[in-house]
Amino acid sequence: MNPDELTRRVQGDAKFAAAMAEQIMRGGKADPELRQFLAMTLAQAQPALLERSAEVLLRNADVHARQQAFDLLSSLPDPPKAVAAAARQALLTEGNPQALANALEALRASGGLASMRTDEAMVQQLRQYASSTDPQLRRESVAALIQADRTGAVEPVLRQALADTDPSVQVAAIGAAIDAGIRSPETKSQLLGLCFDPQADPQVRAEAMSALQSFRLTSDEAIRLAPLEQQLAAAAP
């Protein structure tokens, strides 16, 4: 049976489609490759059924199943709407940091944050998660925050993230600061500090150097950065 024939059968055979959905709703017990294939088929033939399957997984006690739910929702024809509703619920009720990070990642990737910029409750949650003990959740929260909150209130959170101990969080904060249009002297000072910190992660230093191109530098700052820029460029893989 070729893909087109399978799609037509799923569209015309409710029991067959339900059996596919049942396989998906097994969560962590299902074979990952099989689940992905079934999800792609249902996304084309029975998107409403796939969305209901994801909703079931979101209520599963297994955190891996809840994480998989966002992968399913992201495969739907209109992911922003589906992901946004599920992610908002997860942000308010989910207790597992990895599942929260997955929800935020899916939300950003789907573009669903665009409809949530005026949701103050969600913005407050993102600010709280930006201080989580889990680095993945901190990273995703920082990246999501500047899409959900375009006010100047995000700068303190981003500056905190620039000083994070996890390089991935720092890199996310650098990108977020640039995307948010933050060009304050305080942020510039932090970026300069990262550039000249020999203990900083090489990628963090390189990203900070790149970000500083968007700032107005003094002549002294530009002179100090010139040899460092050459050094970092030579060390780049």
Rank of each mutant, 00 (worst) to 15 (best):
L57V: 13
Q44E: 15
P77D: 03
A48N: 11
Q36I: 12
N60M: 02
D31E: 15
A48P: 02
L72S: 04
K15R: 14
A21N: 01
D62P: 01
D71V: 06
I24Y: 02
L92H: 14
L42Y: 03
P97M: 08
V63S: 06
P80F: 07
G95Y: 06
E55H: 12
L34V: 15
E51A: 10
A21Q: 03
E33Y: 05
L91R: 12
A54E: 09
S75P: 00
T93W: 01
V56P: 00
L58V: 00
L38Q: 06
A86E: 12
Q67N: 07
A43F: 10
R52G: 00
P80C: 10
Q46H: 06
R66A: 09
S74E: 00
A39C: 14
L42V: 09
A19F: 05
Q46F: 00
T93N: 12
L49D: 01
M25A: 14
A48R: 14
Q68M: 06
E51W: 02
P47D: 11
A14T: 10
M25L: 04
Q36K: 07
H64G: 05
L92N: 14
A54N: 08
E22K: 11
Q36C: 05
E33N: 08
A39N: 05
F16I: 07
Q36W: 04
S75Q: 11
D62K: 13
A54Y: 03
R26Q: 15
L57T: 05
L49G: 05
A54K: 04
A19P: 02
R66F: 09
A82L: 06
V56F: 07
L58Q: 13
L72E: 04
A30F: 07
A90I: 06
L34H: 10
T93S: 09
T41Q: 14
A45S: 13
K81L: 02
A87I: 11
Q23R: 12
S53K: 10
A45N: 03
L72V: 10
L72H: 06
N96V: 11
Q68A: 06
P77S: 09
I24H: 01
